[in-house]
């Protein structure tokens, strides 16, 4: 009888450890990335590329918000601009500057497409990401009444 009780205690501990290890994997790990870094993964993963990472801090040192968000038509929404490489080489969005004249050109794939594969589209460090309570699911564009 004493031996079997010991057994239960041991297996309980093992069960605890298993649950703990599962929990560690499930909890999204907070990355120390820079505030407002945007990961854009609309099409990249599906096309076999790393997701693109846009560092807001680097660009706001050189340009005011107005240049991209008023002149170039970038919407205030991560992943909301549906940027493709075809649009970029046509001079739209990133391509307005990343054309070899104002900044380096598109042949430097790995400079933008530098995210860890599988990272979802996000603004890193945003308030919504930091809320302890579960996130509200955003309505899809069709359901949202503008």
């Amino acid at each position: 009888m004493k031996l079997s009780l010991d057994f239960i205690v041991k297996w309980k501990a093992i069960l605890f450890a298993l649950m703990g290890s599962v929990a560690i994997i499930m909890i999204p790990q907070s990355a120390p990335a820079e505030y407002a870094d945007v990961v854009i993964n609309n099409y990249a993963d599906a096309a076999g590329m790393r997701p693109a990472v846009f560092p807001h801090w680097y660009h706001r040192i050189r340009f005011r918000c107005k240049v991209c968000h008023a002149d170039l038509g970038f919407k205030f929404k991560a992943g909301g601009n549906k940027i493709t490489m075809a649009k970029i080489i046509d001079g739209q969005f990133c391509g307005a500057c990343h054309n070899g004249e104002i900044s380096w050109s598109v042949e430097n794939c790995g400079m933008c497409h530098s995210g860890i594969p599988g990272t979802p589209t996000q603004i890193h460090g945003s308030t919504i990401q930091k809320l302890v309570a579960p996130q509200y699911k955003a309505l899809s564009d069709k359901k949202r009444v503008q």
Binding site: P32, A33, R50, V53, H113, S114, I116
Partner: peptide, 12 residues
């Protein structure tokens, strides 16, 4: 090292 950029990518 920031957890978003892939360290295996040279560009990072």
């Amino acid at each position: 090292e920031d957890g978003i950029h892939d360290p295996a990518n040279e560009g990072s």
